[in-house]
Amino acid sequence: MIAQLKNVKKEYQGLQVLDGISFVLQPGEIVCLLGPSGSGKTTLLNIMAGLLPADDGECWITDKVSYVFQEDRLLPWKTLLENILFVKAEREVETARAILAKLGLIDFCNYYPAELSGGMKQRAAIARAFYAGGDLFLMDEPFQSLDVELRLRLIKELISLWEVKRNTILFVTHNLEEAILLGHRILVLSDGPAKIKKEFKVEMAPADRVPEDFKELKQEMERCLAVVD
């Protein structure tokens, strides 16, 4: 087991954001947390990452966690390669370069973040997380600001990176297609206060999936998201 949440609750200024979230993450699986904007997905991830305390409930999580934030959070005064190397005490330049090569960024090692496009910066953030390694990768809507074409390309690149070590990924999104293409399991959150409304399982390996094969699942998930609690 990589992580276990039991009845996690969180309140912000009198407003209940998380209302008893429980789930377990197993090694090697990609779990997508699907929910509308403002449903407390980021709050949940921050609690799991130890950046926020939970008000109630239990949150057990493996020691080594990597986090891909919504924003790239690259250091503007460091080159791309230096940004990747920053997160580890010992510099493994070859490993970093290999990850950057897999994400198509090898020619941009000496570029500063300001010289890169939005998609490249987000890929750099993913590269940094994979370089840091860990048993669990928390990803908070990393592709939300990107166009559809780039988003699909990055999903493929993410899957190919995941296939190397098969670390557990908890991928937060409000995009149905992203969830269908990535997740072994998809947990649908209700619209605030958030709790797990339904769980969907997708058997096919992520690398083999195309969106057209999952029209029924997509419709079912849409219905699930549309139902008011």
Partner: peptide
Amino acid sequence: KLLEMAKLYRVGKVKTLCEI
């Protein structure tokens, strides 16, 4: 946000001071 990133990746205090 940069400090939060450094904290999450357990970057040392001296390194955080010098590089962020």
